[in-house]
């Protein structure tokens, strides 16, 4: 599904160049539930942005569902994003002057689905996420968890192959965080590849594969089987703290 080879990325601000990603090679198969971890500045958000075609890279190659993502026009990138990728952000990023239903329906607008049909579909997805009676509410009338569920519905409605989530639980309390994670796991079980960036170990532990970044490189990859050990190490880390 996703194949990265030797990805480099630097940010140039004035005379300073910040080398953020220093040769990332990675393969994620369809249906995986992956979390990306790492200390701040390790390049995890940058990696996610490159995966989501929100940002471009300097060197290397990136294949998403068989498409080489490189030097493509904005229009093509937008089209691919619309077809293949759904986003969930830490700050929800709902459009403030649109109600929940309209926010969820928006990706279908860019797909060219008729208004009636997309509103029907949006309602269906809101119902699935238990937000049917909140459909007419504006984002500022919703709680954090509700907003994130609206955002997830929006990510799901275009039936993407991959959902990318940047700190999806970062702005939520732990109870709601677990609810949202449970939701994401359910989505993953339906066969959608899920990649989340998080710095919370307990959140990462709910995924099937953890990629740990350090200084722009992959430090270690912990697979499903080793998660038990990861949990153990994580609790030990907690104890020392």
């Amino acid at each position: 599904m996703i194949a990265l080879d030797n990805i480099h990325k630097s940010y140039v601000t004035g005379n300073n160049s910040l080398h953020v990603l220093k040769g990332i090679g990675l393969e994620i198969k369809g249906g995986e539930f992956v979390s990306i971890m790492g200390p701040s500045g390790s390049g995890k958000s940058t990696l996610l942005n490159i995966l989501g075609m929100l940002d471009n890279y300097d060197e290397g190659s990136y294949y998403l569902a068989g498409n080489l993502i490189r030097n493509m026009s904005e229009k093509r990138a937008a089209q691919l994003r619309n077809e293949l990728v759904g986003f969930v952000f830490q700050s929800f990023n709902l459009i403030s002057f649109k109600n929940a239903l309209e926010n969820v329906a928006l990706p279908l607008y860019y797909k060219g689905v008729s208004r009636k049909k997309r509103n029907l579909m949006a309602m269906e997805y809101l119902e699935r996420l238990g937000l049917k009676e909140w459909a007419g509410h504006m984002p500022n009338e919703l709680s954090g968890g509700q907003k994130q569920r609206v955002a997830i519905a929006r990510a799901l409605i275009s039936k993407p192959k991959v959902i990318l989530a940047d700190e999806p639980t970062g702005a939520l309390d732990s109870h709601t965080s677990y609810e949202v994670m449970e939701l994401l796991r359910e989505i993953n079980r339906e066969g959608i590849t899920l990649i989340i960036v998080t710095h919370e170990h307990d959140i990462a532990a709910m995924t099937s594969k953890i990629i740990r970044l350090k200084d722009g490189m992959i430090h270690e990859i912990i697979h499903n089987g080793n998660l038990q050990e990861f949990r153990y190490r994580y609790t030990k880390q907690l104890e020392t703290v």
Binding site: G52, L54, E74, K75, A78, Q79, R81, N82, E83, F87, N93, L94, I95, S96, L106, P107, Y110, K111, R154, S158
Partner: peptide, 16 residues
């Protein structure tokens, strides 16, 4: 700007 960013993230082309 932010709204534009959101629209682009969910698949709006620059011309739209």
């Amino acid at each position: 700007t932010k709204e534009i960013g959101i629209r682009k993230a969910i698949g709006a082309s620059p011309s739209s």
